[in-house]
Design a protein around this nucleic acid. Structure first.
Lengths: 258, 258
DNA sequence: CGCGATTTTGATCAATGTCAAAGGTGGTGG
DNA sequence: CCACCACCTTTGACATTGATCAAAATCGCG
C-alpha cells in the first residue's frame, strides 16, 4: 500500500478541518506561500477534510464542482471519457496536487477523478477561490506554477504517446512516475517501489490495449529491464531503462542548431 | 495568408515598443487585467516588439530564455524533440498566447517554437516576471487561467491521440482549430478558412505519418465532410464533422452515473 | 519555365488491436 | 481456516490499422 502516511495519522471522520499548521505537505501544495503567521488565511478559507476509499470517485466528467481539492495523501487518476466510451487517463495526481481548478470556475469540469488508493483531500470553496487568489498574489502565482508544471507533464505525455512505440512508451511512462516519486533523491532509480496501477490503468494512460501492455511488460521483463508484479515495480537495469525512456538526452537532438 | 492584421499596421522595425494603449488584442492576453490608468505598468515592463518571418524560430528546445513572449499576431507551433529525432507538436499558439512561461523560469525550456506565419510578439524580461506578478495579483491570476486553458487543451489532445483512430482524430483536430478560430461566433462552422498547416504539421501533431494523414484527408474529402487544399480548409458537412469529432457529446457517456 | 517543397498514390510490411480462454491473486464470508 | 468470487494477468491465433518505401503529380515561387 503506497499511501497511508497521512491516513494513518489523521482522524477518519469526514469534514473535520485539520490544523493547517500541522499540514505535513504544505511545502508541495498551492498553500506553500502561507507560512507562519499568514497561515490563518488558508485555515479560515478551508472548508474541511475528506477521506475517500480506494476505488471511489472524487468527481466525474460533466460535473459542476462547488469545491477545489488539495490532495493530501494517496493517488488520484485524472481522466476524460470519450463518446466512444473509451477512457483516457490524462494525469496521475500525487500528494500536493491541486484538483478541480480550471480557467472558468463556473463551468462543468471535463475531467473525472478516481481514487487509486485511499485518499485524503482538503477542500476549498470553488466560487470564491479566485477572489482569495487576488488578495494573495503569492497564492495566484503558485497556482500558475502548479498549472505550468501540469502542462509540461501533459506535453511530455503527448510526445510519449504520439511519438514512441510501445516498449519505449511504457518505459518512459514508468520512468517518469519513478522520478516523480523520488523527486528529491538524486540516487539512481534502482530497486522496488509500490505502484497502485493495474495494467489496464497503464493502457488507458498510454493509449494502448491492456493486452498489448501486458506483452510489452513481458518484453521489458525478459530483457531484464524491470518487473511489475502485484503492484510492485522493480527496476533491474536503470541504465537500460533510462536509455529506452530517453531520459537525460531529451534535448541533445537539437544542440546542433545552437 | 491567415495572419497579417497587426503586421500590416505595425512598423516592421524590430524592437520598437508599441504603445500598449493601442494593443488590439489586450483582451485576450495576459495583460488583460491592465486597463486604463494601470496600463503603464505593462508598458514600462515591456521590453519591445519583435517581428519574425514565417519559418523562423522564436526559440529552441534546451534554450535558456531571457524573455517571455506575448503573441500579437500569427501562428506559432510549439513542439518537443525526442532523442529519436522525431518531433511532436504539442500545441498551436494563436494571438493572445503567452509563450515561454514555465514553473522554473531559470531552467532551459523543453519546448521549441516555430513561426508558421509571419509573426509579431511583444517581449517581457523573464527573470523578473514573477516579481511583477507578485505585485499585480490580477496578472498572476490571469497567468494561472491561461495555463489552465492550455492544460485543458493538452488534455484534449491527449485523449484525441490516445483514443481515436485516424479519421476521427483528424476530424477532431481540425474541428478544435476551427472552434478556436471562431471562438465567439456561435454560428455553425460551415465555409472556408485559411489554415497555415502542411499535412506534415498535422501528422506531427497527431502522431501519424504524413502519408497516412494524406490518406485520411482523402477519405474525409470523398465522404464529403471537408476539403483541405492549399492551406484552405472548407467544411462541407458540419454535422457529420461534429459527429466524427465527437463535439458536444463529450460527457454524455457518463451521465448515467450521475 | 524550372526548381524545391508538398501532395498523392500503390504496394508491401510491421506494430498493435481484438477475441477467447486459461491461470493468478487477494479479499470475504462461512 | 478454507472456499469462493471478482478482478486482474497471461497467452495464442488472427484481424486491422497505420508505417514505410518509392515514384509520380502538383503547387508556389523566383
Amino acid at each position: 500500500m503506497p499511501s497511508g502516511t497521512i491516513l494513518k495519522t489523521l482522524p477518519r471522520a469526514p469534514s473535520i478541518p485539520v490544523d493547517c499548521a500541522h499540514c505535513p505537505i504544505r511545502e508541495q501544495t498551492v498553500c506553500r506561500p502561507f507560512r507562519g503567521p499568514g497561515l490563518e488565511v488558508v485555515q479560515e478559507f478551508k472548508l474541511g477534510d475528506r477521506f475517500l476509499p480506494a476505488g471511489s470517485d472524487l468527481f466525474w466528467p460533466g460535473q459542476e464542482l462547488s469545491e477545489l481539492y488539495n490532495l493530501l495523501d494517496g493517488w488520484v487518476v485524472l481522466y476524460r471519457i470519450l463518446a466512444s466510451g473509451r477512457r483516457q487517463i490524462v494525469d496521475f495526481a500525487l500528494p500536493g496536487a491541486f484538483l478541480g481548478y480550471q480557467s472558468q470556475l463556473d463551468q462543468p469540469t471535463q475531467l473525472g477523478a478516481e481514487c487509486l488508493t485511499d485518499v485524503a483531500v482538503c477542500t476549498f470553496p470553488r466560487k470564491s477561490f479566485n477572489d482569495l487568489a487576488l488578495r494573495h498574489p503569492a497564492l495566484a502565482l503558485q497556482l500558475a506554477r502548479l498549472n505550468a508544471q501540469a502542462l509540461s507533464r501533459a506535453h511530455g505525455q503527448l510526445a510519449n504517446i504520439g511519438s514512441r512505440p510501445a516498449v519505449e512508451r511504457t518505459a518512459h511512462f514508468l520512468c517518469e512516475i519513478l522520478l516523480r516519486l523520488r523527486r528529491d533523491e538524486t540516487a539512481p532509480l534502482r530497486g522496488a517501489v509500490d505502484i497502485p496501477l493495474t495494467q489496464t490503468h497503464i493502457a488507458e494512460a498510454l493509449g494502448l490495449s491492456s493486452v498489448y501492455v501486458n506483452k510489452t511488460l513481458r518484453e521489458l521483463r525478459e530483457e531484464g529491464v524491470l518487473v511489475l508484479k502485484n503492484g510492485r515495480l522493480t527496476v533491474l537495469d536503470p541504465v537500460r531503462l533510462a536509455e529506452l525512456a530517453e531520459f537525460e538526452t531529451e534535448f541533445s537532438a537539437h544542440e546542433k542548431i545552437a
